[in-house]
Design a binder for these strands. Structure first.
Length: 592
RNA sequence: GGUCCCGUAGCUCAGCUGGAUAGAGCAACUGCCUUCUAAGCAGUAGGUCUUUGGUUCGAAUCCAAACGGGAUCACCA
């Protein structure tokens, strides 16, 4: 049982005893910094039923807690706020439990499984900043869910077919001259992306030429030779034309090699990858089933629809008149496939908020079809990453490329570290590892500290910070503590918790309190699908530690009990920072 | 136009299951390295929480409307 729960119980008993109020819900909040105490009980809600003034109620409950609660050391009442201080023995006891619990912050298995689908790239262009937000969110959520007791399956659905892929294939066939990643020295995914952009340039030229001949813009866009050619290529691909399929495979393999390199660099991996080229024909049997159940209906042109006006949505096409699939058809099929492959309790999709409507429709259809797993489906919708100039567009080349950005971050980390000159004895391999840790720490933290729902602005002109509310600040705190732990080890000082007579320093109590919040935050982050709660927590913990560090001396305190306790506290904070950052996919360095 | 999301300090963001004088970081200004890592700590300054109503003992937080920004309402994925 947590301290908070015991304290609530004690307050409840006091309320019962003095005001004869049963089943009163007790809400505790952390005490504001200006006041003494750690937990605050607000008495206003009781005033009516207890027929007493708020301050008086606070006084009565406070007196009772002193008399009967084993935890409480003192209290003060400000207006209707009862601020409660705990005994040092309570803090030490709590810290003892935290530091001896190797699985602190990791909940036991809840017997449930969850699938997290994220990343979902297109194979016609390299990953960009928006993908990074997606990848980091998905990866971090997977880790948070795992820590909170779920069995987690990470999946990725690769969009490897369609007209957009044919566009890069066409441009390559016409303009490529047999160029390869090897011959050009260009990373595979970037090479494919280059031809996607070249397609667009040529396509626009053709439209412009047609418009000059008097065609309307709209018609020109449909009649330009290259778009017709690309459509032709898609047909050939769907008919398994050997030459087209060979080109498709060749270019996709380049892209996969490029992706693999990027994923490895950013530390993201999947348990299972689905390819749309394998799943795009799925879902038609579900359409048939839905027609039989009367969930769908046919229009005269043979197209199949569902009426979702009852759910506040519109009529939605689920199969074209010519019998070919649309996006929702595929997704129905893919979801069914995922369920038969894994049979999870929950299915999560980390997908941008421009697809909010799509997922509402998908889930509504699954429910109408009577799929029990539909109730475990959830779309983790996140906002776009915008540039000061507006939206990123791959076709127009106005994207912040993931590889470039990571590269720049590594460079910045390297410059900054060398300026400080603290690791001059590192060999080049060690230094390289540190720069990577710091670069990714800064980048991941930058993208994960914000509420996923909100769109965020990225200004490429201003580099991502390494000071203040950042990943490196927290990494620094860890490295700082590790240095202390090495010193303690050398001096033969062990981490120990003093006896009950020990009078704690306020900074020590604050550290124990901060540590005790970790499991609470893990659960909240898992329930709300919000890695930002962990980000915020890790920052707060690091900040509290740095205050402690500045306020007390660890090794030169005359009291050996204080020294041992502070070493123990430091060790526990380092461990908790390591775990919390680990949930964000961020590594911690021993030195920096 | 319908639906959904967002609007808090110059900037980037916390806080939102109602509670005390609304918190951080960056940027600006002041201090603190002969002592455990100054990528740090302490401090100054910066706010009609978009606006207007409502509910409440109490509203940044809940409700309604307006204004501003974004997304979506494709036989694209």
């Amino acid at each position: 049982m947590t301290i908070e729960a015991i304290l609530k119980e004690d307050i409840q008993k006091a309320v019962q005893k003095h005001f004869q109020l049963d089943n009163q819900e007790i809400i505790l909040q952390p005490t504001k910094k200006e006041f003494e105490g750690f937990y605050t009980f607000v008495t206003f809600p009781l005033t009516k039923a207890a027929r007493k003034a708020p301050a008086e109620i606070g006084q009565i409950i406070g007196d009772e807690l002193i008399a009967s609660s084993s935890l409480v050391a003192g209290f003060n009442v400000v207006q209707g706020f009862l601020n409660i201080s705990l005994k040092d023995s309570t803090w030490l006891d709590l810290f003892g439990k935290i530091s001896s619990d190797a699985t602190f912050g990791t909940l036991p298995s809840n017997g449930k499984s969850v699938m997290v689908e994220f990343s979902s790239p297109n194979t016609n262009k390299p990953l960009h900043l928006g993908h990074l937000r997606n990848n980091f969110l998905g990866d971090s959520l997977s880790k948070i869910l795992k820590a909170s007791g779920y069995d987690v399956v990470k999946t990725c659905l690769v969009n490897d077919r369609g007209i957009h892929i044919c566009k890069s294939m066409l441009a390559y066939r016409e303009l490529g001259n047999g160029e390869t990643p090897e011959s050009s020295g260009i990373k595979g995914d970037h090479l494919a992306g280059k031809y996607y952009v070249l397609f667009d340039i040529e396509y626009k030229k053709q439209i412009k030429a047609l418009v000059e001949q008097g065609m309307s813009e709209e018609e020109a866009a449909k009649k330009a030779p290259w778009i017709l050619e690309a459509q032709q290529l898609l047909l050939l691909w769907e008919n398994n034309d050997p030459e087209t399929v060979a080109l498709w495979q060749k270019m996709n393999n380049w892209v996969y090699e490029g992706f693999a390199e990027t994923y490895k660099k950013i530390g993201v991996s999947f348990d299972k990858t689905y390819y749309e080229s394998n799943t795009y024909l799925l879902g038609k049997d579900i359409i048939e089933e839905g027609l039989q159940k009367g969930v769908f209906f046919k229009k005269p042109d043979n197209s199949v629809w569902i009426d979702l006006t009852e759910e506040g949505l519109d009529e939605k096409l689920v199969l074209r008149g010519d019998g070919t699939s649309v996006y929702i058809t595929q997704d129905l099929g893919t979801t069914e496939l995922k369920n038969s492959d894994f049979g999870n309790d929950r299915y999560l999709w980390v997908v941008g908020n421009e697809q909010d409507y799509h997922f509402k429709v998908l889930f509504a259809i699954l429910k109408r079809l009577g799929r029990t797993y539909a109730h475990g489906c959830y779309h983790i919708s996140y906002g776009m990453v915008d540039l000061p100039s507006g939206k990123m567009k791959s076709r127009e080349g106005t994207v912040v490329d993931a590889d470039d950005l990571v590269g720049q971050m590594v460079q910045t980390a390297s410059d900054r570290t060398q300026e400080l000159g603290k690791i001059d004895d590192f060999n080049s391999e060690e230094a390289k590892q540190l720069y990577n840790q710091l670069a990714l720490g800064a980048l991941k933290y930058f993208l994960l500290k914000v509420d996923p729902k909100k769109r965020m602005l990225f200004n490429p002109e201003e580099s991502i910070d390494f000071q203040g509310h950042t990943g490196p600040f927290i990494q620094y705190t860890y490295a700082r503590i590790r240095s202390i732990m090495r010193k303690a080890e050398q001096a033969g000082i062990s981490a120990e918790i003093p006896g009950d007579s020990y009078a704690m320093h306020q900074a020590e109590r604050e550290l124990v309190f901060a540590l005790s919040q970790y499991p609470v935050k893990v659960v909240a982050a898992a329930n709300e699908f919000a890695p930002s709660l962990i980000s915020q927590y890790a920052f707060d913990l690091a900040k509290v530690y740095n205050q402690f560090y500045a306020e007390v001396s660890i090794f030169s305190d005359p009291d050996p009990e204080a020294v041992k306790l502070r070493v123990a506290l430091s060790g526990a904070v380092a461990e908790t920072i390591r775990k919390a950052l680990g949930l964000l996919g961020i590594d911690v360095p021993e030195r920096m």
